Simulated assay, not measured.
Amino acid sequence: MYNPWLALSLKAVQMGVEAQSVIALRMLRLATGGARMEAEASRMVTEKVAAAAEAQAVAAASALSGGSPLVAASKALRVVKKRVRANKRRLSRH
């Protein structure tokens, strides 16, 4: 039997593992100090607030349009996952 909540949970775990690598890359950037460290620290806080607001707005819009809780959660996860991947790409570059 297929459980869509299990599939969503597995996607969330995958995103969590990817987020851990972003955290490691950010810690390396913060450890270097200087202007790049200050810019990264500021960007980190700003991005988290923006990602949370966007995910909440997407989930609320889905719920208000009659979508199921699973659809709302999937859309919110997609927003956060997109941000995590973008940060991983950006921080992996030299």
Rank of each mutant, 00 (worst) to 15 (best):
M44T: 09
E54K: 12
I23Y: 08
E40Q: 15
M15E: 12
S65W: 01
E54S: 04
S92C: 06
E47L: 15
S92A: 13
M1P: 09
A61Y: 07
A7H: 01
L28D: 15
T32Q: 15
V84Q: 01
L64N: 13
L70G: 11
R36C: 09
P4R: 07
A19L: 10
E47K: 03
L8W: 01
S68P: 03
K88S: 10
L70P: 04
K81N: 13
R85L: 13
S92R: 08
G16M: 11
Q14K: 10
A51T: 09
R93A: 15
S21M: 04
I23E: 10
L70T: 07
L77S: 04
V79P: 03
Q20D: 10
R36D: 15
L6C: 02
E47V: 07
L10E: 14
A73F: 02
A60C: 11
S21W: 01
M1A: 07
Q20T: 11
G16Y: 08
E18G: 02
G66V: 14
A72H: 03
V13G: 04
R78H: 15
S42E: 15
Q56P: 00
A86C: 03
A50Y: 00
V49L: 12
S9W: 02
S21D: 09
A35R: 12
A55G: 14
V84N: 01
A61C: 09
V80E: 07
V79S: 03
G33R: 09
S42P: 00
A31R: 14
R36Q: 15
R93N: 11
P69N: 14
A12T: 13
A86P: 04
L77G: 05
K48N: 10
A19D: 09
A72D: 08
S74F: 01
G66N: 13
S42H: 05
H94Q: 12
R90T: 13
P69I: 03
M1F: 08
A41M: 11
L28H: 11
L25Q: 11
I23N: 12
V45N: 05
K11G: 06
L77V: 03
K82F: 02
R26H: 02
K75I: 02
E40H: 07
S9Y: 00
A60H: 10
R85G: 05
E47N: 06
K88C: 06
V58D: 10
A50W: 00
V49A: 11
R29C: 14
V17N: 08
L6R: 05
V79T: 07
V84D: 01
L8G: 04
G67A: 13
A39I: 08
R36G: 12
A60R: 14
A73L: 05
Q56R: 13
A35I: 05
G67E: 10
R93D: 14
A76C: 08
T46M: 10
Q56Y: 12
G66Q: 13
Y2F: 11
G67L: 03
Y2V: 06
L6P: 00
A55P: 06
A76M: 04
G16L: 09
M27R: 12
V71L: 14
S9L: 05
M27G: 09
V17A: 15
A60I: 09
R26V: 00
L91K: 11
P4Y: 01
P4T: 09
A57V: 03
M1C: 06
S42I: 02
V71A: 14
V84C: 01
A60N: 14
V45Q: 05
M27N: 14
E18Q: 13
R83M: 08
K11N: 07
R83Q: 11
